[in-house]
């Protein structure tokens, strides 16, 4: 798998030509999103967003609260439709990709079904797509082991801690081995220690499955630790201000030691400068944790 992050601000593939046989995992072209409100005060959540994500690439979206990160993710997931512009996922329209189950998704809230056991929650997407019972059980056992919850298979969500619930949600998003993972602040509700462990786990899982990831976060170190590229967004109307390539080596080699490395701090500094940068002093970075 070769995912060379390109120069900052330069999409991997402008249209088809560069992407040889494999279409990009995600290709967002000239996308805007306006939320119409009854009072006539429309909210422009996104404006002229272009972004291309290669298969297997890990891209974080970071920016001040309300800049449209979740909106962009929901557009890619076809949970909402753009006002203008087009979105393709693995060469298909967002709608086709959703119906073909091209992506797995995890939200800030774990969103587990409280009346289902942990195992049944993980099996939910498989069940909906008519996967046989035996195959379902085998897959959920695999995923339970992956997120370290094998002993909790028959527990119910209300018997789990927040972090454990979030791990179940991540296992569920991986159930169908998607080539693309969409994650909206999945670790937002976790304490710092669990969070760092989950980050390491996620890097490992992505390395194992080769999935591309779009990851929304408020934390600069988290974005830097996880990503091949960090997309910095500006406050409303949401635009892409900067795309910063983070070259911390292959995903397989990332471990706790990396958090102390110089290259890590350099990347953190450049993301922070980009976030605060142009609009110095302005409330640009409100809602962003500089941890």
């Amino acid at each position: 798998m070769s995912t060379e992050p390109t120069e900052s601000g330069q999409p991997v593939a402008q249209g088809q030509p560069v992407a040889s046989a494999r279409p990009p995992a995600v290709s967002v072209a000239g996308v805007s999103k306006v939320f119409a409100s009854r009072k006539g005060t429309d909210v422009t959540a996104l404006e002229a967003v272009d972004l291309t994500i290669a298969p297997g690439e890990f891209v974080s979206l970071i920016g001040p609260s309300g800049c449209g990160k979740s909106t962009l993710l929901r557009l890619i997931a076809d949970l909402d439709t753009p006002t203008s512009g087009s979105i393709e996922v693995f060469g298909k329209t967002a709608r086709e990709a959703r119906i073909d189950q091209a992506y797995g998704i995890a939200f800030q809230q774990a969103g587990l079904l409280p009346w289902r056991t942990v195992r049944a929650n993980i099996e939910l997407p498989l069940e909906l797509h008519k996967v046989g019972k035996a195959a379902r059980a085998a897959r959920s056992s695999e995923l339970l082991a992956l997120v370290g919850l094998s002993d909790f298979a028959d527990k119910y969500p209300d018997q789990l801690s927040g972090g454990m619930q979030q791990r179940v949600a991540i296992a569920r998003s991986l159930a169908e081995s998607p080539g693309l993972l969409l994650m909206d602040e999945p670790f937002g509700a976790l304490d710092e220690m669990t969070r760092e462990r989950m980050q390491t786990e996620l890097v490992r899982i992505c390395a194992e499955t080769g999935a591309a990831v779009v990851f929304v976060t408020h934390s600069i170190p988290e974005a830097v630790f996880l990503s091949n590229r960090v997309v910095v967004m500006s406050p409303r109307p949401g635009r892409i201000r900067d795309i910063i390539a983070v070259d911390l080596g292959r995903a397989e080699g990332r471990d706790e030691g990396l958090r102390e490395a110089d290259s890590f701090f350099e990347a953190v500094v450049s993301v922070r400068e980009s976030l605060h940068g142009e609009a110095a002093g302005a409330p640009a970075a409100r809602g962003v944790d500089i941890r």
């Binding site: 929901r74 076809d78 959703r98 969103g111 079904l113 009346w115 997407p125």
Partner: peptide
């Protein structure tokens, strides 16, 4: 819950599937 509705849409679930998986048990 909206998050459950989003999830069902993300899975491309039919409205009957969504009713059976989320709406009915949620109403119990």
């Amino acid at each position: 819950r909206p998050v459950h509705r989003d999830l069902m849409r993300a899975y491309g679930a039919s409205s009957w599937q969504a009713t059976r998986a989320v709406t009915l048990p949620g109403a119990v």
